[in-house]
Amino acid sequence: MLELADVHTFYGNIRALRGVSIAVESGEIVTLIGANGAGKTTTLRTILGTVRPRRGTVSFAGQRLNTLPTDRIVRLGIAQSPEGRRIFPRMTVLENLELGAFARRDREAIPADLERVFTLFPRLRERVGQVGGTLSGGEQQMLAMARAIMLNPEVVLLDEPSMGLAPILVDEVFRIISRLKERGATMLLVEQFAAAALNVADYGYVLENGRISVHGPAESLKNDPAVKAAYLGGGHQH
């Protein structure tokens, strides 16, 4: 469904991605793990068209994305729940969610999707009239994820959903990701917290210095000694 083939992305003269190839099939959760600065966020920016690859192709359902503007890419059905929890701080939870659905054509399906989102995120239902900026960090993270889901996308790009959250909330976020998976969601999950990511994913890629160093079914990566040593020890987790 979503494919990067031999992608090289530069910032000025600095090569951030060096021949990255990734494939995400429909109904699959694929995770991209790696240390800070490995190129994980650059990969998402390249998919969304906010940076362009100098070499290689990005395609979605057979259509090349390299030359399309970001708003067209989003309309094709790719939604990002961004790192940094970008929400509208002066708008209520409900207004934020309704804005998440603004690009949709199927207006009549929106109330049912709102209900679905509130079932997934019961905390948001309790705070439906509350202004976004007054929510806790964890609730803002959930609101950012819920907004991406309200777009009813073909693919959700999740950028570091556990970033800065207390462990109990990290567990909750990953439980929600598991539930979305049960409903057949397709996701590319970028995550530093490798153990949790590999527990929910079908397939994983490890990014090191802009290159994919190892990839395979999530189960086999969890048991790969090199991956274990670098990413599943105590040092890399929040």
Rank of each mutant, 00 (worst) to 15 (best):
I168S: 13
L68D: 06
R211T: 13
P111N: 06
A146I: 04
L135S: 05
G77V: 09
L143N: 08
G210W: 14
M187K: 12
S59W: 03
R147F: 06
T134H: 14
L151S: 15
A79K: 02
F60D: 06
S21D: 08
P89E: 12
G34A: 05
R45D: 11
A185I: 06
L221N: 01
L180H: 03
Q237N: 07
V131I: 14
L120R: 04
L65D: 02
N13L: 14
R104G: 11
A23T: 05
A16K: 07
L120P: 02
L207W: 09
I110D: 07
I33R: 01
L32A: 02
H8E: 12
P82R: 12
H236T: 05
G34F: 06
R104W: 09
G234S: 14
F174K: 00
A230C: 04
E98D: 10
Q141H: 03
H8K: 14
R75V: 11
H238Q: 01
V170M: 03
V51D: 00
A112G: 12
G233P: 01
G129Y: 15
L68E: 00
T70V: 14
L165A: 00
V227N: 04
E182F: 11
R72D: 00
G184T: 09
V170W: 02
L169M: 15
K181C: 11
A218W: 01
A101K: 08
R179W: 11
L189W: 05
L94K: 13
E3W: 10
R211G: 13
P82K: 00
R85N: 09
D71Q: 12
R64D: 07
L143G: 06
R183C: 08
K40H: 00
R147V: 05
S178R: 13
A79N: 09
P225I: 09
S178K: 02
D159P: 03
S136A: 08
A101D: 01
L180T: 05
V7P: 03
T186P: 04
R179K: 15
T46S: 11
L151P: 05
G137C: 12
S59F: 07
T43D: 02
L120C: 10
L207G: 01
F88L: 12
R107G: 08
V20P: 04
I78A: 01
R18G: 00
V20H: 02
T9E: 07
L17A: 13
T41A: 04
T67Y: 10
G39V: 04
D6P: 05
I110F: 09
G12K: 04
E98Q: 11
N13K: 10
R55F: 15
L44F: 15
L65N: 00
G100A: 10
F88E: 12
V173F: 04
F118W: 14
L232N: 03
D106H: 07
D159Q: 08
G184E: 11
E208R: 05
G137P: 08
E95S: 07
